[in-house]
Structure formats: structure tokens, C-alpha cells
Simulated assay, not measured.
Amino acid sequence: MTLKIRIVDGSAPYEQVRAQISEQARSGALPVGYRLPTVRGLAERLGLAANTVAKAYRALETDGVIETRGRNGTFVAAAGSAAEREAAGAAAAYAERVRRLGLSEAQASAAARDALRAAYGE
């Protein structure tokens, strides 16, 4: 696992850790079942506070990218299926909400497209 934190990058260090681990898990560079370093170990290696790495790990666990198995450690989960299930659930909730608001399919699609573009910095 290779992580590089760039302080001048402008994004928070925990977000850089989260994004890099997520991308490496998604690309297969970190295979399903790969055991991640402990929070303290990774923090030490990167020169970060343990709370910073812990925050990144919590976000990754919420996203379904990693799973913690108690004292056994933290491992890369089958992220694709968990992420896709969560996205489908969020999309269903969004569809129900815009239907109740009385928006047309075109209006709802335009709002979702705008939100996605903003989220991806386009």
C-alpha cells in the first residue's frame, strides 16, 4: 500500500488517506481481504495524528470499503457491491423524495446531474 499526503494539496489529510485507500481498493491494488496497517502504525508512517487516520478509517468503513474485525484488524472489504448497494439505496430515497415534491423526471434528473457535477468538481 502506497499513500502520499500532500499538505499543499488543499484537501484535508484524512480525506487524502480516505481517497487513496478507496481508489486502491477499487482498482484492485489493494485486494479484497488485504489487512490494513493499524491506525497508529499508519499514522506514524505518514507523520499524521492517529485521530486523522482513525477518521479516514471510519469514513472508509461507512462507505463499505473496509471492515474492522475487532482485534483481528482492519481489512479491505468487497467494496464494489457494498458501494453499489448503498448508491442504489440513496438513489431510491432520492427518487421517492422528488416524486413527493412533485418534480418531473426531467427536473429530478437535472438536479441529480448538477449535484454529481458539483461533487466531482466539474
Rank of each mutant, 00 (worst) to 15 (best):
A49E: 07
G33H: 09
A111D: 09
K55Y: 04
E96M: 04
P31N: 02
E67M: 08
A59W: 03
V65P: 03
R6T: 15
Q16P: 14
T52I: 07
V65D: 01
A90G: 02
I5L: 11
A56E: 15
G47V: 11
L46C: 03
A92W: 05
A90V: 13
L42E: 14
Y34H: 10
V39E: 08
A108V: 11
R97E: 10
G102E: 09
A59E: 05
Q16F: 14
A88L: 09
V39H: 00
E23M: 15
M1W: 02
A43G: 14
A112T: 03
A43K: 07
S27K: 06
K55R: 14
T38S: 15
G47W: 15
Y120D: 10
E122N: 05
Q20T: 06
E44C: 06
R100W: 08
G70W: 09
S109L: 10
V65G: 02
V53N: 08
A19Q: 07
V76W: 03
G28V: 04
R35G: 00
R40K: 06
E96A: 11
A115Q: 12
A91L: 14
V32M: 03
R97I: 08
A83R: 15
N72S: 13
L42A: 09
V32C: 03
P37K: 12
Y120T: 13
D9H: 09
R113I: 03
E61I: 03
N51C: 09
A95W: 14
E44I: 04
E86C: 02
A118Q: 11
V17F: 07
A112Y: 04
Y34K: 01
A83C: 13
E44K: 11
E44M: 02
G80I: 06
T2R: 05
Q107Y: 04
R35F: 01
V39L: 02
I7Q: 04
V8A: 07
A88P: 00
D114I: 07
G47C: 08
L3R: 02
A119F: 01
G70A: 06
Y14V: 00
R113C: 01
L30M: 06
L30N: 03
S27R: 12
A77S: 14
L103I: 06
E67W: 03
L36H: 02
G70H: 08
L103V: 00
A87P: 05
P37N: 09
D114K: 12
G33N: 14
Y94E: 01
K4T: 08
L101D: 12
A118E: 10
Y57Q: 01
G70E: 03
T62E: 14
G10L: 09
E44F: 02
E96V: 13
R26W: 15
A111Q: 08
Y120L: 12
A49H: 14
V8M: 05
A79W: 13
G41R: 07
G47F: 15
F75H: 00
F75P: 00
E23C: 11
T52C: 11
S109K: 10
